[in-house]
Amino acid sequence: MTTPALEVVAPAGTLAALRAAVEAGADAVYCGFRDATNARNFPGLNFSRDDLREGIAFAHGRGVRVFLAINTFPAATAPALWRQAVDDAARLGVDALILADIGLLDYASTRHPDVRRHLSVQASAATAEAITYYAEAFGVRRVVLPRVLAIPEITILTNAVTVETEVFAYGGLCVMAEGRCHLSSYVTGQSPNTHSVCSPASHVRYEQRAGRLVSRLGAFTINTFAPEESAGYPTLCKGRFKTRDRTGYLFEEPVSLNVIDLLPALKAAGVRAIKIEGRQRVGGPMWPRSRQPSATPWMPRPQGTPAGRTRWRT
């Protein structure tokens, strides 16, 4: 028996990015509506209903599937927005819904049982028991695994569950369990869970102080940089802080995730798809000009990004 090729799931922050991803050879693209229902609710990004209709027609015309992320937790005070998003996505013919909230999974599986359901990484399903629960209770068919899992763990999990697994191949690295992190809202009042953003740009400031560039989030200094250093984006988990014994990157260095060198291992582990992060990146990820076969290492590696590290153990 031959294992199927790894499927490449590419991000689309805009209709133009969707077209580019389809042309570049993605097997599926994922996108979100232009509101609080998706975890990348940035200004100027995401899809209207008409955009989605057009995007689905374009992608399906070329044999590419479209997934819609409705992967935030519905607000208790306005659940209709999320239910409407599920209903509209089903009506427009998405190939899968990417969901995180238990109540919304229940709603989607009851109202639209025929629309495939994937579990968002925001649900932080990191054990076979958790994945099995989502599969049994809500008919989830694929789960996006947390970014911090290493290959051996991915292999064990993939073999222990009956649903497909998808892993992040490129993008930011969350070192905290996704969907269970309140660091951003502690400092800014907004987090992926509550406002669909982490460390929102509206709360970021850079200022010069004594010859160093200071990055601030909310009311706090997250890092300072010498003139020759490149300044990172101030998220709490990748800042420089002090304890009585040590000053530095207490949680994580400001690096990204890139598993290009691990693609054969991921395929051997039984992983069904790799996911590229970056719906919010300006201009989208850098696609090659010509269509290439899936799962070949065509993604550029940013400078300073260590290759093939899915986890830094401490």
Binding site: V175, M176, R180, H182, Y186, F251, R313, T314
Partner: peptide
């Protein structure tokens, strides 16, 4: 104190230069 996040990595160990 408000629990804000959980990780597979141990930051206490990291601060002390130790492995988990």
């Amino acid at each position: 104190r408000v629990p804000l996040s959980i990780s597979a990595r141990c930051y206490h160990a990291r601060v002390h230069g130790l492995h988990k």
